[in-house]
């Protein structure tokens, strides 16, 4: 009957999560990380059927993670935490962390 539907969740999304999606969830929950960044054109992503994962490139010779950091935290420790989270996914490949932007609170922006 409707056998193929068994592999879909209630909202119609596939139940299986790709490594890139799992990694994106882990990285964006790292302290100091505001969000994942798609680069200046939004092209940095893992392209999956029907969706894309912004800021993560898992295919190729390296693992590439692009993030927007929160204002006020030194960036190297943030990058270290991101790298630690990525390690299980890297399988020996280098993990390159790109801090593409900073999220600055409005208070600091408005002060002229």
């Amino acid at each position: 009957m409707n056998e193929p539907l068994a592999s879909l969740s209630v909202v119609g999304m596939p139940v299986t999560t790709e490594p890139a999606e799992a990694l994106a969830a882990l990285v964006s929950s790292c302290p100091g990380v505001a969000s994942l960044s798609g680069g200046s054109l939004g092209e940095v992503a893992t392209y999956l059927p029907g969706r894309r994962v912004r800021g993560i490139r898992l295919d190729g010779q390296s693992v590439e993670v692009h993030v927007v950091a929160h204002w006020g935290t030194p960036l190297p420790p943030i990058a270290d935490r991101v790298r630690a989270v990525c390690l299980p996914f890297a399988s020996g490949r280098p993990i390159d962390v790109y801090v593409d932007d900073l999220e600055v609170p409005e208070v600091l922006l408005s002060r002229a």
Binding site: A69, P76, R83, L87, D96, V97, V99, D100, D101
Partner: peptide, 19 residues
């Protein structure tokens, strides 16, 4: 905390430094 590690590079964008 180094930017270049054995496990990969950390790259900081221009806009981050200028902010």
């Amino acid at each position: 905390s180094e930017l270049t590690t054995a496990q990969g590079q950390t790259t900081i964008a221009d806009s981050v430094v200028s902010k």
